[in-house]
Each structure stands twice: as structure tokens, then as C-alpha cells.
């Protein structure tokens, strides 16, 4: 049982404490707290308007929360509250150890720059300067997300939706982040493309030892990808726990409704 003792001693990669975001008098998300450990994948589910995307954006620093802490275990300084970081520090974090995969690939890509350029840009942001090396890495990553390297000079606007999404993932993961935020990564893709993307995400998570927080409304996606699950309703976390426990033996009325509403194929 040595390994379990070791895991208990581990510092959480991300500690979220009492995070609250209000839109005027309305609640975006309220009093959300959890710890995420290295290598863990956490799913956040809930219906539209439940606050799951608000929470994700507040954690990722896209909009400022009203209260709370988002403490990240940085490589150099250990745990730091990212909300108190200076803007340049947070931007640097966003380019190195953090990644954000948007629901719409267009929001996460530069549509007027070639596929290779989209990947290379992130490498250059962390100091990559050698053109040949950047191009080699870009080609390597296109291969890893199953895009032919003959498409390296094409713009993403010439790609299908599924390819754009895979390109966005390549662009985000090329710098070897430790934490990836994903907002409905498989939303809007047809099922065969979804399956391919899920398979890809799962193997990348395992090979790279990534931690991830995935917002989705698709319970099948979290069952396959997430170790842990948080269920949100009206801005509050109503239930959380091990993914299969929450789905197989939901305790809260809302989770029971959610689970029983899924259509069986």
C-alpha cells in the first residue's frame, strides 16, 4: 500500500477555495471548492445555465471572480493564488503550464494563420526561435492528432469542424502543459468524430500525465474521460465524487433526474 501513502502526501495541483462569481444580483457560481491532484481528470456537468462554464472561465482567469482563491502548484514557486498574480504572470501561465480548449475551435485558433503556424505560435511564445525545429514539432503534433502533415500550410478555415478541434488540442498541448481546461471539447461534433477525439484525449492524458477539468453536458463523455465528477445546478455544486459512483448511485435529486434523463442507445 506504499503507493497510496505516497498519493496522500501529494500536493494538489490546483486548489479552488470558495470561488464565487456574480453577475450583478444573479449567481454565476457560488462557493465552489475542490482540490485537483496531478494526473486527475475532473468532469463538471450540469444543464445550460448551471454555471459550469462560468466556473471554468473564472478558474482559468478569463473573467475575474468576486471571491475565492485559485491556487496552482507552480513549478518554481510552489502553490500560488493565480488570482493575485500580475497580468503578465498569469498570461505566461496560460501559455506554459495551462491550456484552454474552447468549445468552438474558432475561439481557440487563429483562423488566418496556417495549421503549422497555429501550433508554432505557442512554441514561439515560450521562446522557440529555430524555424526548422518549430516546424518539425508542429508536424509531429499534427500527426499525433491525426491530421496529415500535408495540411501543415493550410489555414484552419479549410478544415472540417473535427479537424479544427484536433488542431486546437495540438496547439494547446504542444508546450506540455500540466493542467488543461476544456469547455465542451466534443460539443457540436458528430459521434464518429467524438469517439476519435475521446480516444485521442484519453491517450494524451495518460501519456503526458495531464490533469484536466472538462465541462460538458454529455454524461457519456465524463464516464469515459473523468475520474471524478462535480454536478452543478443554479451555480452551486450539488454533488461530487467518483464518476461512476455519482452516475450509478446518484444521491442528489437533481443528479438522479439528470442520470435518468439520458436516452439509452
Amino acid at each position: 500500500m506504499g503507493a497510496q501513502v505516497k498519493e496522500q502526501d501529494m500536493t494538489p495541483l490546483l486548489q479552488v477555495n470558495a470561488l464565487t462569481k456574480m453577475y450583478g444580483p444573479r449567481i454565476g457560481c457560488k462557493d465552489v471548492s475542490f482540490d485537483l491532484y496531478p494526473g486527475e481528470v475532473m468532469g463538471i456537468v450540469g444543464e445550460s445555465g448551471s454555471g459550469k462554464s462560468t466556473l471554468l472561465n473564472a478558474m482559468a482567469g478569463h473573467h475575474a471572480p468576486d471571491q475565492g482563491e485559485v491556487v496552482f502548484d507552480t513549478r518554481v514557486d510552489g502553490p500560488v493564488d493565480t488570482l493575485k498574480m500580475s497580468e503578465p504572470e498569469r498570461r505566461m501561465l496560460g501559455r506554459t503550464d495551462w491550456a484552454f480548449v474552447h468549445q468552438h475551435a474558432r475561439d481557440g485558433l487563429r483562423m488566418s494563420v496556417s495549421a503549422g503556424g497555429n501550433i508554432g505560435e505557442r512554441l514561439m511564445a515560450v521562446g522557440g526561435r529555430h524555424y526548422g525545429e518549430i516546424r518539425t514539432q508542429a508536424a509531429d503534433w499534427l500527426g499525433r492528432v491525426e491530421i496529415s502533415d500535408s495540411r501543415i500550410d493550410d489555414r484552419p478555415s479549410a478544415f472540417s469542424g473535427g479537424m479544427q478541434q484536433r488542431l486546437q488540442i495540438a496547439r494547446n498541448l504542444v508546450t506540455g502543459p500540466r493542467l488543461v481546461f476544456m469547455d465542451e471539447p466534443t460539443g457540436g461534433l458528430d459521434v464518429s468524430v467524438q469517439a476519435r477525439l475521446l480516444d485521442l484525449l484519453r491517450s494524451l492524458v495518460r501519456e503526458m500525465g495531464l490533469s484536466a477539468i472538462i465541462v460538458t453536458h454529455d454524461l457519456a463523455v465524463v464516464r469515459l474521460l473523468a475520474d471524478r465528477l462535480m454536478v452543478m445546478k443554479d451555480g452551486h455544486v450539488v454533488e461530487s465524487g467518483l464518476t461512476d459512483q455519482v452516475l450509478d448511485d446518484p444521491q442528489h435529486a437533481y443528479t438522479q433526474l439528470l442520470v435518468s434523463s439520458v436516452l439509452q442507445v
Binding site: Q4, Q8, E40, D227, R228, L242
Partner: peptide, 17 residues
Amino acid sequence: VGDLDVAQAEPRQIIAL
């Protein structure tokens, strides 16, 4: 199970188990 009480354990302890 072993020395872990599954009824009380944290998700990550169950995952490790």
C-alpha cells in the same frame, strides 16, 4: 479493502485502489 475504507475514502484513494 486492504487498509482502505471504501465507504469513507476520497475519490483519488479509490482510483488508486
